[in-house]
Structure formats: C-alpha cells, structure tokens
C-alpha cells in the first residue's frame, strides 16, 4: 500500500477488483467472464486473420493458393487446433448471449421498476429476470461446445 499524502494509505483494489469476484454476486462472476472472454476472442480473431490469409498465399500472397492453404491446414487442423476451436465456440456463445443480457439490462428493459422496498432487502436488479439469462448463456455455451466437440472429435467432420 503506497502512501497517498496526508498520512493516508491508498487502498484501491486495482486489477484484482476486475479479476477476482470471490465474495460477490453471480453477476459479478459474469462480469469477469465477459471481460476475459472478450479479450480471448479478440486474440483468437487476430490469429484467425493470420491463418485465413494463407488462403491467398499468406500475409504477402497475391491470390487463392491451394498449396499455401494446404500448408496452413497442416499446422492448425490437428487435435490441439480443434481443442482451441471448441474453447472458442464455448466462449463466443457465452460472450454473445451474456452480451445480449447486458444490452437489455443497460437499457433498463429486464430489471423491473423502482418500487417501495421491504425487509429483508432483495435488490430488484439482481433477481431472476436478467439472472436467468446468465444461466441461458452458460447452458447454450456448453451445448454449443459439446456440439462442436462432436463435430471435430466425434467423427462428424
């Protein structure tokens, strides 16, 4: 903890506030996963721009090239590459579905209205209305990834 002048010590959580949802609510966990999966998907997309460029002969290619495509396929089309694809399908479906929940929530569509409150306090915004969509995101992601695994590993390719 660094000093903040006036004899006070700075105590902001820093990145652990983003990454560690322990002790907090379900939505906080969804927040962490949304952020982490977003970065992971962008990293994959950038890599995917690289591998798909081999369809036209690589980064400095000039047109569709079968030999170049065969070359890159030899590198990415294996069990490890397919495992990555299954994980990508998992996080993409989660990020997309959870993102729809966030848009609807942030536009105030699925949170209910302010109302008089009673003990014990239960926040309206953290009720099943939007929370069900987190579960939907998880279930859809797992089903989608299982399907992708069946296609890539189960002989449906």
């Amino acid at each position: 903890m660094s000093s903040e002048g006036g004899g006070k010590a700075r105590n902001r959580r820093g990145l652990s506030g983003w990454l560690n949802p322990y002790h907090y609510n379900f939505e906080r966990w969804a927040y962490v996963f949304q952020r982490v999966t977003g970065i992971a998907i962008l990293a994959y997309v950038i890599g995917h721009l690289g591998d798909t460029s081999f369809f036209v002969g690589g980064p400095i290619g000039t047109g569709p090239s079968q030999s170049s495509w065969t070359f890159i396929s030899g590198i990415v089309e294996n069990s490890f590459g397919h495992l990555i694809l299954v994980l990508v399908v998992l996080v993409v479906i989660f990020h997309g579905t959870n993102g729809l929940r966030l848009i609807a929530s942030e536009m105030g569509l699925i949170l209910g209205r302010p109302a008089s409150i009673e003990y014990p306090y239960k926040p309206r915004s953290l009720r099943l209305g939007q929370r069900a969509l987190i579960w939907a995101a998880i279930i859809l992601a797992v089903v989608g990834a299982a399907w992708a695994a069946m296609i890539l590993f189960g002989g449906l390719a």
Binding site: S53, F55, V56, G61, T62, G63, P64, S65, Q66
Partner: peptide, 19 residues
Amino acid sequence: TVAFGSKTVILAVFGGASG
C-alpha cells in the same frame, strides 16, 4: 486489422488462383 483482413477477402474474390 480491417485492412489486412479485407486484403484477404479482395484477393480471394478477385486474385488469380494458383496451385
């Protein structure tokens, strides 16, 4: 990144194919 990706798309559509 859009320029790089677009280059792939444009060459794939209009570029001369090779073996």
